[in-house]
């Protein structure tokens, strides 16, 4: 029985980590703009080759 309790507490702990991560990302503004970030990462930076 205590194994279940242990598992519950561990998974609860993991959930807390994710909740904190979620709050952090909201605070960071990651949910404000859902268009730019996924495209920005795809741009190839040719800057070095140019200069």
């Amino acid at each position: 029985m205590s194994a279940i309790i242990l598992l519950l507490l561990v998974s609860f702990g993991i959930a807390v980590v994710f909740l904190v991560g979620f709050f952090w990302s909201v605070r960071d503004g990651q949910f404000d703009d859902d268009y730019a970030p996924p495209r920005r990462i795809l741009f190839e930076d040719k800057e070095e080759k140019v200069s």
């Binding site: 959930a15 807390v16 909740l19 979620f22 709050f23 909201v26 503004g29 949910f31 404000d32």
Partner: peptide
């Protein structure tokens, strides 16, 4: 920028599941 709804949904989902 109002982000309270995000916090609320996140927190409610977390509490609900747990």
């Amino acid at each position: 920028i109002d982000r309270t709804r995000w916090y609320k949904i996140g927190l409610a989902g977390f509490c609900f599941a747990n």
